Measured scan of single mutants.
Amino acid sequence: ETGKELVLALYDYQEKSPREVTMKKGDILTLLNSTNKDWWKVEVNDRQGFVPAAYVKKL
């Protein structure tokens, strides 16, 4: 879809709370919100949640 910003997972991340999502290094995720410098909201496999901003980079 146009207008979607994507990020690349630089590291594996295992969710530690229900508000977070698990990702694997190399995953491409849809970026939903990056206003917080530490935690970015992403969508992966129809799930939305937060990942550490340092673990992903914008494509």
Rank of each mutant, 00 (worst) to 15 (best):
Q14S: 12
T35Y: 10
E15Y: 05
A9I: 02
V51R: 01
E15T: 07
M23S: 00
D38M: 13
R47F: 06
L6C: 09
K58N: 07
K16F: 05
T2V: 14
K25Y: 05
A54H: 13
G3P: 14
V51T: 02
K4R: 14
E15M: 12
K58T: 08
D46L: 10
G3K: 15
Q14L: 14
K57G: 09
W39Q: 02
Q48H: 08
T30K: 13
V7P: 00
T22W: 04
K58H: 09
S34N: 08
D27H: 05
E15H: 09
L29Q: 01
V21I: 15
Q48F: 07
A54K: 14
N36Q: 09
K25I: 06
K24L: 08
T30Q: 11
K24D: 04
D46I: 07
M23K: 00
V44W: 07
L6I: 08
R19D: 14
L8R: 08
Q48C: 10
V56M: 05
E5A: 11
I28F: 06
A9N: 01
D27A: 08
D12H: 06
D46A: 11
Y55Q: 04
V7M: 05
N45H: 13
A53R: 12
L29I: 07
A54G: 09
P52K: 03
V42R: 00
D27N: 08
R19F: 13
L8N: 02
G3C: 13
W40S: 02
M23Y: 02
E5F: 10
A54I: 10
L59K: 04
V42L: 03
A53Q: 06
L29H: 03
W40Y: 08
L29M: 14
E1T: 15
K57D: 07
D12G: 06
Y13T: 00
Y55V: 05
V56I: 07
I28E: 03
E20F: 06
L32P: 00
E5P: 10
K37I: 10
E5I: 15
P18Q: 09
L10T: 05
Y11K: 13
E1L: 11
T30N: 09
R47P: 00
D46R: 09
L29Y: 11
I28V: 10
V51I: 09
A9K: 01
D38S: 10
D38C: 13
K58Y: 09
S17H: 12
G49V: 05
K37A: 13
V56H: 00
P18S: 12
I28L: 09
E5Y: 11
L6W: 14
L59R: 03
R19Q: 13
V44Y: 15
A9G: 03
R47M: 07
R47V: 08
E1C: 14
G49A: 03
A54E: 12
V21Q: 03
V21G: 02
F50Q: 03
S17Y: 07
Y11M: 11
T22A: 07
A9R: 01
W39I: 02
V44E: 04
L32A: 03
Y13D: 01
K25D: 02
T30E: 11
T22Q: 04
T22S: 15
K16S: 09
L31S: 01
V44T: 15
V44I: 15
D38G: 09
L6H: 10
S17F: 06
K16L: 09
W39L: 03
I28G: 01
N33M: 08
L59D: 04
Y55A: 11
P52A: 02
K4F: 12
K4I: 13
E15I: 06
E5H: 12
A53Y: 02
M23A: 02
M23V: 09
G3F: 14
G49C: 03
T22F: 04
K25F: 05
V21H: 04
K37L: 09
P18H: 10
W39D: 01
N36D: 15
Y55M: 13
R47G: 04
G49E: 02
V42I: 08
V21N: 04
T22R: 05
V56S: 01
E43M: 11
V7E: 01
L6Y: 15
M23L: 08
K24N: 08
L59H: 06
N33H: 08
K16V: 07
K57C: 13
A9T: 04
R47A: 06
T2R: 06
D12E: 05
L59Q: 06
K58V: 13
E5G: 11
E5L: 11
F50H: 05
F50I: 07
A54R: 14
G3Y: 13
K4V: 14
K4W: 10
I28W: 05
R47K: 12
D12C: 06
E20C: 07
E43K: 10
T35P: 04
L31T: 01
S34Q: 10
D38N: 12
W39G: 00
D38R: 12
V21P: 01
K16Y: 05
Q14N: 14
F50C: 10
K57V: 15
D38L: 12
P52T: 01
E15A: 15
L10C: 07
G49N: 01
V51M: 01
K24F: 13
E15F: 06
T30R: 14
D27Q: 14
W40A: 04
R19I: 13
G49T: 02
P18A: 12
K25A: 14
A53D: 02
T2G: 14
V44D: 11
V42Y: 01
Y13A: 00
L8C: 09
V21T: 05
V51Y: 00
Y55F: 12
Q48L: 07
L29R: 00
D27K: 03
K57L: 14
R19M: 14
E20W: 04
E1F: 06
E43I: 09
D12R: 03
E20Y: 05
K37E: 10
D12K: 03
F50W: 15
D12M: 03
M23C: 06
K25N: 04
E20S: 06
Y13M: 01
V21D: 01
E1H: 13
G3N: 10
Y13W: 12
K58M: 10
E5C: 13
K37P: 13
S34Y: 07
N33I: 08
V51A: 03
L6N: 05
R19A: 12
G26V: 00
G49Y: 05
E20V: 04
L29E: 00
E5W: 13
K4S: 11
K41A: 08
Y13N: 01
R47I: 08
P52F: 02
E20D: 05
D46N: 13
E43Y: 07
F50L: 09
N45L: 12
T22L: 03
V21M: 13
M23W: 02
E15P: 15
N33G: 06
R47N: 06
E43A: 11
V44N: 15
S34R: 07
G26K: 02
P52L: 04
D38Y: 15
T22K: 04
T30V: 15
Y55S: 11
T2N: 15
Y55K: 06
L31V: 07
V21A: 06
V56A: 03
V51F: 01
L29D: 00
L32D: 01
P18W: 10
K4G: 10
K58C: 09
W40I: 05
L6F: 15
S17W: 06
P52D: 02
A53P: 04
S34E: 15
V42E: 00
G26C: 08
T35Q: 12
I28R: 05
E5T: 13
V56P: 00
N45W: 09
V51H: 00
Y11C: 14
A9W: 02
M23F: 11
S17C: 09
Y55W: 07
W40T: 03
V7N: 00
D12Q: 03
D27T: 08
E15Q: 13
D38F: 15
R47D: 03
D46F: 12
W39F: 07
W40H: 02
E43R: 10
Y11A: 11
F50D: 04
N33C: 11
L59Y: 09
E20M: 05
A9Y: 01
D12T: 05
K57M: 15
S34T: 10
K16R: 14
L31R: 00
V56K: 01
L59G: 04
E5R: 10
E20L: 05
L32M: 07
P18K: 09
L29N: 01
R19W: 15
Q14H: 14
V7S: 02
K16A: 11
E20K: 04
G3A: 14
K16W: 04
G3L: 13
E20I: 04
D27Y: 05
Q48G: 06
N45M: 12
T35H: 11
T2I: 14
W39Y: 07
V44C: 10
E5S: 12
K57W: 10
